[in-house]
Amino acid sequence: MTSMPHSTLARTRGTAFAAARLRSRSALPCSGLGLIVLIPLAGVFFKAATLGPAEIWNIVSSERVLAALKLSFGTALLAALLNAVFGLLVAWVFVRYEFPGKRLFDAAIDLPFALPTAVAGIALTALYAGNGWIGSLLEPLGLKVAYTPLGIVVALTFIGLPFVVRTVEPVLRDAEKEFEEAAASLGARRWQTIWRVILPSILPSLLTGFALAFARGVGEYGSVIFIAGNIPFVSEIAPLLIVIRLEEFNYAAATTVAATMLVVSFAMLLVINVLQAWSNRHSIRHAPTAIKEK
């Protein structure tokens, strides 16, 4: 199929006319976006900016805020790493193997997407608490999950898994078996095939999935607050601290924590985007055929 450039429509209809139409059409999403998303979001930074640097520093450098931020980003990072590994494995199994009940499992992967976070939170807590089905098995081993930072990692891993699986799966499906067979027939060992052929072609999508899971994990609230136990300095996540400050009507502190979270998340996502651009170039060099196919 010859693909037409998307701008053809605008051009054939006379630029001025099309531009006028476009303005009227895009006015709706733009104004909606502006009113509901952008202006309020900018409000966070304006509010934080009115505080002055000394006060901002005071709030951010307080021990409780630092502990909460460290916990949020740390657990989210750990959970996203776990998800990258397990998500890749799950996606691999779904793409390459047939087994009974596959469609049921396939639907179950999306459960964390569809399940309200509060429901996920109380269900996980009930499972992992000392008297729960899984918790009662782990407790004798000296492993406490619920009401500890470990519980947060469990909740975030549950929430983030579908992000990795669903971003890697289509790419893995496109990366055809022939490349692996070609590599094998040219004398590559199994791990060489994985390392040099498969991994480079799925790395960008794996990074995307990782970034999505991470971003979701940092901000996650509903599922975490039930399982975390919410002990200040130990298992109190940054979003919860925002809520606590809000309930104290301490808007300055709440806003500052929120703005810090936003800045750090955006910085991390930027780094991941750069990494992704780099690995895209990298994979073009290493797996030229896979790209040409597209």
Partner: peptide, 24 residues
């Protein structure tokens, strides 16, 4: 830019989403 903005609510914590309306 617009495409990025549409995805923005995905990467913003729901708590922050609530906060911005309280501030406003």
């Amino acid at each position: 830019f617009l495409t990025t903005l549409i995805d923005l609510p995905f990467s913003v914590s729901p708590v922050v989403a609530g906060l911005i309306y309280v501030l406003m």
